[in-house]
Design a protein around this nucleic acid. Structure first.
Lengths: 344, 344
DNA sequence: TTGAAAGCGCTAACAA
DNA sequence: TTGTTAGCGCTTTCAA
């Protein structure tokens, strides 16, 4: 309106049908349409406090934005500010795990809440993919990276992670540097066992995983602690080692019956399902109670918060998240009565 | 080396421990270190053919890149080129579906193959979230958006989608504009039924979904076609309507036994599992065969390819993807023999 | 074979 | 109250 500037390219009509050749509507277009400078438009858009813009100027700018269908360019913003609104999530097993959807969703939700977007990369354990994924994230100037493993274990920190902020999720660095969020296995094992004790059980079997891991030792310890606190003696015969999956649970059924357990603490959901199948096959509905160590996306949510510095971090940099224990009497019931919904 | 330029900020040592205050290593830093111009660095990095760079210059540049730990800035690239390497995936149900992990992974894989990164947003059906998600993607100048629904159904195309390229996945526009990838329900129903026919079954039940949808009508039609092509008469009594989940399958068990079916075509995996439970509960192992309409991430992969224009698109813009049929004799077996692994 | 410089869309001093 | 301008890191003519 006021200043005449050389026209750039062909001016574009407002509601032009989106197609290949659509030209970006920029702040400058808005500024011209509203007869103000780009700086003014910027101020209006970002609602900068301290910026005194006349009410009708503001109106004109807003109108121009609507009319032109203007969208801010996040890339340009990032370029200026130096850091994007991305958080990277590198996982070694998204595809292969049934609950991954929920985990990713949990992380996404928390990130979103704070104005961040998740950039997810699934490596399936492939180191090259991992390296590429991390590079990609670094090139996009992510705010930080969550490095997460499928089961709780020690993990080597890929070197390039050090080029940005990062938090380990579900794993920890052997060297004990690095911030990490891990499940509290001991507490989890204790709680699960306590639940069964409260039901009055005296022979509680524990189907532990065969995989050497913090989970294996931690949960066993928790199981033991709970028993002893409950005045029972730990009986090694009640501890069954099994593959941490359905087959493992199925295979454990015989042992469970043989040792006369009245309740079972299962390493995880799949084990519990396998056990259920195995018991049914033998026509038994013993045991009456099954407890499972819950699985949750608390870790990854905590990871997001830790990355963004929203919570206090303990000195050793390792946050231990309480593991919910799920009582699965229901798992021994048919869907019609009260069935397992989806997961957890 | 050659040109003396005013130093910018404090120069940063190479292997400086990554921390809060890390300054970006830019192309300019590399150029200075190598004693060339940024243009040259750019040419070397992108391996521009037609650019004749002396071999030792090239070496020097590469060395400087390594020494400084330079990472290209994807944002700056995007800004110049106008379009990012992002593909958006808007889904109405990631968290709630057990296979979402695989789906996302499939899409991610295909996108990755072509140099793109997936930006995933899960709306859980919330319109505000959806709007925000699409805005976010548009602001990041995504190459295009995949708009996907959990089950095959007609869907209104959110208006802002038109600001970029987009492909509907697992749904189609009532108006028939818009490119879309949907499963071929009729073929799927036919194939599943044919498998059971080939096993010599004469009373094949079909547990259909109660939800009105292309799946419901299409699969029924396929079921019917296969029967008739196989010389059998369609018997409406063999078609059981049930909720498309575990409870539905469980509830259908009685009917299945009552009508004397020797095989069952189930709407999906969860139905099959429920049915299995229901039959076991009644001590029956009939039917001998269960077929399930497969579930796959083919649609979303095809969506990625369509978006990138890698495949020919039919005139009506709707690609119909063959649905695999999974024979699930195995579902009626215990894990030890041959069990369902994880999912699908 | 290489360098200088313009410009991608935006923010943030600094002026006016 | 608003405008001018200098970059953010990169690509890409056009010159040299």
């Amino acid at each position: 309106m006021t200043s005449e500037q050389p026209p750039r390219a062909e001016p574009v009509a407002a509601n032009q049908p989106a197609q290949q050749g659509r030209r970006l509507v920029t702040m400058r277009d808005v500024a011209e349409a509203a007869g103000v400078s780009v700086a003014t438009v910027s101020l209006v858009i970002n609602d900068k406090r301290g910026a005194r813009i006349g009410p009708e100027t503001r109106q004109r700018v807003r109108k121009a934005i609507r009319d032109l269908g203007y969208r801010p360019n996040a890339m340009a913003k990032t370029l200026v500010s130096g850091s994007s609104k991305f958080i990277g999530l590198v996982a070694d097993a998204i595809a292969s795990t049934p609950f991954a959807g929920q985990i990713v969703h949990g992380a996404q939700d928390e990130a979103w809440k704070h104005g961040y977007v998740l950039l997810v990369a699934n490596t399936e354990g492939d180191e090259n993919v991992e390296t590429d994924a991390i590079s990609m994230m670094l090139e996009h100037k992510v705010r930080g990276i969550l490095y997460s493993t499928w089961y709780h274990r020690p993990a080597d920190v890929p070197k390039p992670l050090h080029e940005t902020d990062f938090v380990l999720v579900n794993c920890s660095s052997p060297d004990g540097d690095a911030q990490a969020v891990v499940p509290d296995e001991v507490q989890g094992g204790r709680t699960a066992t306590e639940i069964l004790l409260q039901h009055g059980h005296h022979r509680i079997a524990f189907i532990n995983t065969t995989t050497p891991s913090p989970a294996r030792t931690g949960r066993l310890q928790g199981y033991r602690e709970a028993l002893e606190a409950g005045g029972q003696t730990f009986d090694a015969a009640l501890v069954i080692d099994a593959q941490p999956d359905q087959e493992g649970g199925y295979a454990a059924a015989e042992r469970v019956l043989a040792i006369g357990a009245t309740a079972v603490f299962c390493h995880n959901d799949r084990v519990a399902m396998g056990l259920y199948d195995g018991l049914k096959e033998r026509g038994r509905s013993i045991p009456g109670d099954i407890a499972v160590m819950g699985f949750d996306n608390q870790e990854v949510i905590a990871g997001v918060r830790m990355l963004l510095g929203l919570d206090e971090t303990p000195d050793d940099g390792v946050v231990r998240i309480a593991c919910p224990s799920v009582e699965r009497a229901s798992i021994a019931r048919s869907p019609a009565h009260g069935h397992r919904t989806g997961a957890r």
